[in-house]
Simulated scan of single mutants.
Amino acid sequence: MMQLNIVDETSPLKAVILGTAKSCGPVPSPDEAYDPKSLEHILAGTYPKEADMEKEMDAFAKVFQKYGVEVYRPEILQNCNQIFARDIAFVIEDKLFHANILPDREREFVAIHEVLDKIDPNKVIRPPEEVHIEGGDVMPWNDYIFIGTYTGPDYPDYITARTNREAVEYIRRMFPYKTVKSFELRKSNTDPKENALHLDCCFQPVGKDKAILHRNGFLLEEEYQWLVDHFGKDNVFEINKDEMYQMFSNVFSISPEVVVSEKGFTRLNNWLREQGFTVEEIPYAEIAKQEGLLRCSTMPLIRE
C-alpha cells in the first residue's frame, strides 16, 4: 500500500502523478474553452500542438528521474486533455481528495487507477456534491491550508471560478486542527490578464520561507497583505500582470532547494538563484497557453 503524505508545497518529493499530453484531442472550438487564455490562442490560431506539449512534459519527467522521484502517469484516454493532473485530485496529509470538477472531466480521475489501486480506499475521499474544489486552489503549508476561492453572488457566471465557499467550510471540518485561510481571487471569463484561475496562478511558496506573489490576483488587499506579512516583504518575489499571465507563480518544487521553472522566466529564475535555489529550467511555454503550467501538471503524492 502507498502511504500518502503531503503537508506542504516544498518538502523533498518522493512520488508524483504527472499528467500526459498524449492523445489530447483536436483544437477545441471557442465555445469549448474553459478559460480566457485558451480561448485567446484558439481564436489566434496559436493553440499548442500535441507533439510540442509531449516534448515539454517529457522534459519535466526527465527532471523527476534525475532526482529519483517515482512518477506515475494516467492511463491515456483517446482525445482527452489529461495534462492538468492537479485539477482532478489533491492530497492533504494521508488523504487523497477526489475533486468535484467539470462533469466531462470525471473520466480523467478514473484514468489514475494505477495509483488509486495502491491507496487504502478509506483514504480516498469524495467531497459532497455542493463542494466545488480543484487542486490548483489548495495549498497545504505546515499548520495552514491556503485555499483560493470566489464567493461572489455571481459565482455561477464564472467558468473560471472553481472553488466555492462550501469547499472552504468542508476543508475546515476535515482538518479542524489546521488554520484554513481562504483568499478571494479575481475572476474573468474574457481577459486572461485579469483572471486568477486558481490560487497557484497568483501565489506559491518556495523553499522554507519564500513566496511568489501577484497582487492583482487577489480581490481583497488585506488578504494579499496577510501573505506579504506572513512571508516577510524581503522573502516575496512580486510578479507583474504580464508575468502572472505567463504563469510565473506556477513553478514546481522538488525540494526546499530545487525548483523546476520555465526557461523563459529569466527575471524569476535569476532571483531564485540569488536566493540559493537550484533552478531546473525546462521549456513549457506551449502548455502555458492553456492557462496552466508546472504545478498544474503535477499531483504530488508523497513528500518526506
Rank of each mutant, 00 (worst) to 15 (best):
K66N: 07
Y224R: 02
L185W: 06
G217H: 02
Y158H: 12
V180K: 04
L272F: 03
L116E: 05
I88V: 15
I83C: 13
W141L: 12
Y67L: 11
A196L: 03
I92L: 12
I88A: 14
L77E: 00
D143F: 10
R73D: 02
R107V: 11
K49D: 03
H230M: 14
R172L: 00
I83L: 14
K123E: 09
P156H: 07
Y170E: 07
R273T: 07
D137C: 04
N270K: 04
H230R: 10
P36L: 14
M2I: 15
E291C: 11
S255A: 11
P205Y: 06
L199V: 02
V138R: 01
D154F: 08
A44H: 00
D234M: 05
V259W: 08
V16W: 00
N5G: 02
Q275N: 10
I147F: 06
R173L: 03
E75Y: 12
V279A: 08
V124R: 15
N195S: 08
T179A: 09
H98R: 15
N79R: 03
N270I: 09
L219P: 00
L116C: 08
P48H: 05
D234L: 06
K193L: 05
A167K: 14
S29E: 15
M2L: 15
A51Q: 12
F231I: 10
R172V: 03
D35C: 12
E50P: 07
G217T: 01
E56Y: 09
S11L: 09
P283L: 12
P156C: 05
I147A: 01
V16I: 15
L77I: 08
V115G: 13
E169H: 15
D8G: 07
K123H: 13
I17E: 08
Y150L: 01
Q82L: 12
G136L: 07
A33Y: 05
V206G: 06
F146P: 03
T160Y: 05
L18E: 02
D234T: 09
K118I: 05
F146V: 06
E129K: 12
Y34R: 09
V131K: 04
Q275S: 05
G45F: 00
E169W: 13
G276F: 11
I42T: 03
A99C: 15
T20D: 05
F146N: 00
E40A: 11
Y155S: 02
E70G: 03
A89N: 13
V115Q: 07
R186T: 15
Q225V: 09
L4C: 05
I17T: 11
